[in-house]
Simulated assay, not measured.
Amino acid sequence: MLVRVDKEADAIYLELSNEPIESSEEVSDEVILDYTADGRMVGIEILQASQKSHADTP
């Protein structure tokens, strides 16, 4: 698994597999799941990540 953080876009992407993404589905407000052609999940994108975190950040 690979975790990518884009501070400028305020987004986090959890890459579960490097397989090609065939479709995406927004499952809740600003949380998007990416799937292969046969329906396996390959990634999770969280937008506005800093607003969804409970961690204290400097």
Rank of each mutant, 00 (worst) to 15 (best):
M1H: 13
M1S: 14
L2H: 08
L2S: 11
V3W: 09
V3H: 10
R4P: 02
R4S: 09
V5N: 11
V5L: 11
D6Q: 05
D6A: 07
D6E: 07
D6F: 08
K7C: 06
E8T: 11
E8N: 09
E8F: 05
E8S: 11
A9I: 05
A9T: 10
D10H: 10
D10A: 14
D10F: 12
D10V: 11
A11I: 11
A11H: 09
A11Y: 07
I12L: 15
Y13G: 00
Y13H: 04
L14N: 01
L14M: 05
L14C: 05
E15C: 08
L16A: 01
S17V: 06
S17Y: 06
S17G: 09
N18E: 09
N18D: 12
N18V: 07
N18M: 09
E19K: 14
E19N: 09
E19G: 04
P20S: 08
I21W: 02
I21P: 04
I21C: 08
I21N: 03
I21L: 08
I21E: 03
I21K: 04
E22T: 07
E22Q: 10
E22K: 07
S23L: 06
S23W: 03
S23T: 13
S24M: 10
S24V: 07
S24H: 09
E26V: 14
E26P: 11
V27M: 08
S28Y: 07
S28R: 15
S28G: 12
S28N: 13
E30Y: 01
E30Q: 13
E30P: 02
E30N: 13
V31D: 02
V31Y: 01
V31F: 03
V31Q: 03
V31W: 02
I32V: 15
I32P: 04
I32C: 08
L33F: 05
L33Y: 03
L33E: 01
D34I: 00
D34P: 00
Y35W: 01
Y35T: 00
T36Q: 04
A37W: 02
A37Q: 09
A37I: 10
A37T: 06
A37P: 02
D38Q: 07
D38E: 13
G39N: 10
G39M: 06
G39I: 06
G39E: 03
R40D: 01
M41I: 11
M41F: 00
M41T: 06
M41Q: 12
V42S: 04
V42L: 05
V42E: 00
G43E: 00
G43N: 02
G43W: 00
G43C: 04
I44R: 01
I44Q: 03
I44H: 01
E45R: 06
E45F: 03
E45D: 12
E45H: 06
I46F: 02
L47K: 08
Q48N: 15
Q48E: 13
Q48Y: 05
Q48R: 14
Q48I: 05
A49D: 04
A49C: 06
A49H: 01
S50K: 14
S50C: 12
Q51T: 14
K52E: 07
K52P: 01
K52A: 11
K52D: 08
S53F: 09
S53C: 05
H54Y: 11
H54V: 09
A55C: 12
A55T: 13
A55Q: 15
A55L: 14
D56W: 02
T57K: 14
T57N: 11
T57P: 03
T57E: 14
T57I: 13
P58F: 08
P58I: 02
